[in-house]
Amino acid sequence: MRQVWIICKRELNSFFDSLMAYVMLIAFLGFTGLFTWLYVADIFLRNEASLQVFFGISYWTLFFFIPALTMGQLAEENRSGTIELLLTKPVRDRQVIVGKFLSTLILIAIALACTIPYYITVANLGPIDHGAVISGYLGLLLMSATYVAIGIFASSISNNQIVGFLLAIFIGIFFHWVFGMLAMGISGIFGELFNFLSTQAHFDSISRGVIDTKDLIYFFSMITVSLVATEGILSKKHSS
């Protein structure tokens, strides 16, 4: 665990040193702020004290931002050869991967924490369902963790960051949108299957305030599968 934290700390520092973290925070807050408060279907137009608009915007904003954060995490290490340096220190492949995963997740959590003033503002404007807000944030965090894991997997495949980004988007879009679409069009067992695979379905149910074990199992198994697959790719890279 100590090794994981050391790796995680370095990654976080590197996000902030390279300005990546600031760009991400500003862009995320700007984007969600604009659509939550000022533009088209904003909170005032809806005229209800809820953060559903914000959660809906974040659902898509994070989908595109996360691959940008994860794309270099292993691709850059592979390209520059620092992965060799790292893995010849007393660290396991798994600790490196989990450390990187946590660092990105912490950055996302910081970004989400910066939106707590939205919550406070809305709570002052009218009666808000506190439970729904908390579970909405939880849903965003779980969804982010899933895409971070997918992003890191995509990043491990090639030495090229752009490939890492595009691959993460490509894999992600199936869970984010395509499976949900298919589930709506197909009935029966396949419909059920696609519905289970869709992030949207699980995110929606959590952000409505219903925390079901089925949803938790979905998110945790997605994260585990992605990270285990990454470990497989990484160990294959340096053993062959």
Partner: peptide, 30 residues
């Protein structure tokens, strides 16, 4: 890994880190 000190070919390093931070990182890993 604990008893080996290794300088790989081409000497890969993290370019954005300060020398002292980098050495601290490696020391902590060890």
């Amino acid at each position: 890994k604990k008893v080996i000190g290794y300088l790989p070919e081409h000497n890969p390093l993290y370019p954005e880190m300060a020398v002292i931070d980098y050495l601290r990182f490696v020391a902590e890993l060890h």
